[in-house]
C-alpha cells in the first residue's frame, strides 16, 4: 500500500449470499487521494457493489453475503476475510449517494438539516454548509419544497447537496445523473467539476461517456464483476 493510498484492495471476492456466484472479483486495486475516478461498464458488472463496499454498506457475512480478501481505507482495515472493522474514519470521511436516492419525508431543508445533525454539524456552520451545497447544485430556492414535489433530477441534486453538506472528503456517487433531465444533468456535472477542482475525491459510476471524459482522470471498466481496463492510471 502506498503512503497516500485511499483504498487498497487485495484478492477481493464478494458474493451476495454464500453459494452464490461472485458479484465482484478484484485481485489488486489501489486508489489514491484526490482522484476523480469513474466506474464504467454495463449494469450488473459490479460497479455499485464496489462502491457500497467502499462505504461499508454491504453485509459482513453469514447467510446474506460472503467476502474474501482484504479492503483497506487510508491504511486501516475495513474488511479482512469475514472480519468487518467498520472504521470510524471511513464513516466520517466518506458518503455514498444512491443511483435513485432516498429523500426523507419532509422538506428539502429537513433533508439538509438531517445530514448536518447526523454529522454533528450544528448552528451557523450547518446553515452555511446547507446553503453552500444547495447553491452548488442549483437548489438554493428549494428549501421549503416538499419531497413529494421534487422531480427525479431535483431529488438527485438534493442527494448530491446532502453528501456535499456532510463534509465528506470522499464522495461515492452511483450514477449521479441517472434520473436527471438535461438541466439537472448540467448542474450536477458542473457541481462535480467544481468539487474536483477543489480537491474532493470523487468516485462515481456512469454510463455517459461525455461526463466521464469531462470529469474523470481515471476510468475503471467493469465487466461481469471484474475490472477489465484501468485507463489513465
Amino acid at each position: 500500500m502506498g503512503a497516500k493510498s485511499l483504498y487498497s484492495v487485495r484478492n477481493l471476492e464478494f458474493s451476495y449470499g454464500s453459494g452464490q456466484p461472485a458479484a465482484l472479483t478484484i485481485p489488486r486495486l489501489e486508489i489514491g487521494e484526490g482522484q476523480c475516478l469513474a466506474f464504467a461498464g454495463p449494469n450488473g458488472s459490479g460497479k455499485t457493489t464496489l462502491m457500497m463496499l467502499f462505504n461499508d454498506l454491504l453485509p459482513g457475512g453469514g447467510e446474506s453475503a460472503a467476502f474474501a480478501g482484504e479492503l483497506w481505507f487510508r491504511g486501516e482495515p475495513v474488511r479482512r476475510g469475514m472480519s468487518c472493522f467498520h472504521p470510524r474514519a471511513l464513516r466520517k470521511s466518506t458518503a455514498y449517494m444512491h443511483q435513485h436516492p432516498y429523500v426523507l419525508a419532509g422538506s428539502v431543508a429537513h433533508n439538509m438539516s438531517f445530514v448536518c445533525r447526523a454529522r454533528g454539524i450544528s448552528g451557523q456552520a450547518a446553515i452555511e454548509a446547507s446553503a453552500k451545497a444547495l447553491k452548488l447544485v442549483g437548489l438554493e430556492d428549494f428549501a421549503a419544497r416538499r419531497q413529494k414535489g421534487l422531480s427525479g433530477g431535483e431529488a438527485q441534486r438534493l442527494a448530491l447537496a446532502r453528501v456535499i453538506a456532510s463534509g465528506a472528503e470522499v464522495l461515492l456517487l452511483d450514477e449521479p445523473t441517472a434520473s436527471a433531465d438535461a438541466a439537472s444533468r448540467d448542474r450536477i456535472v458542473a457541481a462535480l467539476a467544481q468539487l474536483v477542482e477543489n480537491g474532493t475525491t470523487i468516485i462515481f459510476s456512469s454510463h455517459e461517456q461525455d461526463i466521464i471524459d469531462r470529469i474523470a482522470r481515471r476510468v475503471l471498466v467493469f465487466e461481469r464483476g471484474a475490472i477489465i481496463q484501468d485507463i489513465g492510471r
Binding site: 454498506l57 455514498y96 426523507l104 454529522r119
Partner: peptide, 8 residues
C-alpha cells in the same frame, strides 16, 4: 443505508 452513510 442513507442513515448509515452519514454515520447517524
Amino acid at each position: 443505508e442513507t442513515l448509515e452513510t452519514f454515520g447517524t
